[in-house]
Design a protein around this nucleic acid. Structure first.
Lengths: 335, 335
DNA sequence: TTGTAAGCGTTATCAA
DNA sequence: TTGATAACGCTTACAA
């Protein structure tokens, strides 16, 4: 038995029911104040009676705007992307735009997908972790405004990020100066993402400014499993260090946990720091020293910038970096 | 200096450039195989040269489908919603649909927003945590297919969820039978969300089937801060219990942490369990006993169901509950 | 295999 | 304050 069909009424039916022209119905919807109160109530009643919902595609086509912005993220694991997305969404809804989400990890043709989206939204916010090429970015940007999140500077496209180099340098300096660490290791792959690159840069800078020379990074993906693997090497003595500056909390969490289990005292024998300040960082023993980024703010900032771009038709290519804060708990050696 | 304008070419310009009709261009885009190879390459070249991207609104209008499904979630904190969303996205992209996301927490008019979306997508997936009324659901469902996630049964609308009652009962039973707990407390508000209601139901069921009578729930929001507050009461002796079945991990995490800090041994004096198995559950000491839900699968299931709804025009109102698994770590008393 | 042309459901311009 | 009506940029019969 076929159920109640999903029937959509058109503006014509509403107009007929209210005894007005479709133009008036349209006005009641977009600029109610310009139509006479009496007509307005009549139209509203008809809309209500018919359960009328205007067709978004037709609206977009006629008005030449989609009331939507696309957000491209690599994935949604961990708090970082979720918070960012949450920031996007709240700022977007503020300006009456919907968020069209796409997750690129594991997708065969990210480029094609982004182009498809470019035809359905008013702007694109693309996280650099998606790995889109500068060429694609340029090409997309020729159609609609594009903002890159957490990426490197780009000639024509605005990039918005949180700060990495400076805070990584402070954190590393803390390990060297306060906790006397002399054999630090950076765990993570600077070529994997622009923000990790920044963190390693800070790591090097802290060494350099103290006349020390920083070792090459211990390249690995920033996930728990890799943290466990590195911990095993350390425990087996195949790797030596008295301090680990990790690319993110996931890595650090796994490292602290496994190191402790295998008898390598953290922070007694070895300091460990993370990045992101996820919830688990607070519940770990010892508490994880890490860096907190204003991720939600970043999301909001991106949308605000987009809304600015949409208004004025010229583009201020002003990169911005949001400040982060170092959170010292016990895993670095602090009490 | 106004920068390069975001210029969009139309199908007419592509047609002209390739020396064909717009119909042929359209075919090259949607059914390339029906056009002659030689024409196809010519058109493709023109598309490429012009950096042509078809207008999504026009496509949707003409083809009468939006290639998009809306997802309404209350918020994006914690792993639950993010994982669900990730599941949605991956299944949706599989069927060539985009995800339009809306977060309802703190929005003035959720109803209006959902109606607006209903006019822009082919289907709606609404999480019951958004708190939409059954009336709104019905009204929306008259326009487009609607699927409710993690909600109560509904006469005409499909509801898809993970299982709660049975697993909560097993978990509670474990505390009673294996760990001899006789003064359990359910922490969380069953009226706040349908799945919490299910968990409390299971809690009661476990008691009832053993001839015990379950206490009223300790109603509170399922967030860390509330966990800390409850812990304070327990520590102060204003509340007594030898076991806590918490509505989620956040609550449980905070509880275990604070209880331990104030000298109340977990699990020695008091067992604590959570729900969700977030990452922090594994890094907590003692490890948190909890329940894992196949959240990602749920997201995928929802989209698959939607795709089914979109194909066949009739609707099987078959509610489904995905099985969960109880994870026993140390916080319940297990070793 | 390709072209012609009629919509698709709005918005917006112009008159009235 | 309202109504005709021409776009908007595509898809899709139907013809050729």
């Amino acid at each position: 038995m076929p159920q109640a069909q999903h029937k959509r009424h058109t503006i014509y039916e509403v107009a007929a029911a209210a005894g007005v022209s479709i133009a008036t119905v349209s006005r009641v919807i977009s600029r109610p104040e310009v139509v006479a109160a009496s007509t307005r109530t009549r139209v509203l009643a008809a809309i209500d009676a018919l359960n009328y919902v205007p067709d978004g595609a037709a609206r977009s086509l006629a008005a030449r705007q989609n009331e939507a912005v696309a957000v491209a993220l690599p994935e949604l694991n961990g708090p970082y992307y979720a918070e960012l997305l949450s920031g996007f969404e709240s700022a977007a809804s503020e300006i009456g735009a919907s968020i069209v989400l796409t997750l690129t990890r594991g997708k065969p043709s990210v480029d094609a997908e982004l182009r498809r989206l470019a035809g359905r939204v008013d702007a694109l916010a693309i996280h650099s972790g998606t790995g889109v090429s500068a060429a694609t970015l340029e090409s997309l940007h020729r159609k609609v405004p594009v903002v890159v999140v957490a990426g490197p500077r780009h000639p024509h496209i605005t990039t918005l990020s949180t700060e990495n180099v400076e805070s990584a340098s402070r954190l590393t300096g803390h390990l060297i100066d306060t906790h006397q660490r002399r054999q630090l290791l950076f765990v993570g792959d600077p070529t994997a993402a622009d923000d990790i690159a920044g963190r390693y840069l800070g790591f090097r800078a802290a060494h350099a400014s103290r006349g020390l020379t920083a070792p090459e990074p211990l390249r690995c993906e920033a996930v728990e499993a890799e943290g466990r693997r590195v911990a095993a090497f350390l425990a087996a003595g195949e790797l030596t260090a008295d301090g680990l500056v990790c690319a993110n909390d996931e890595l650090a969490l796994a490292l602290v946990h496994e190191l402790s289990r295998s008898g390598l005292d953290v922070p007694g024998r070895i300091s460990v720091t993370g990045w992101d300040d996820m919830m688990a960082a607070r519940y770990l023993t010892p508490g994880l020293s890490t860096v907190r980024q204003p991720v939600r703010d970043l999301g909001e900032l991106v949308v605000n910038h987009i809304s600015h771009l949409l208004g004025h038709r010229e583009e201020p290519v002003a990169p911005r970096r949001l400040a982060t804060s170092v959170i010292l708990r016990q895993s670095c050696g602090c009490s």
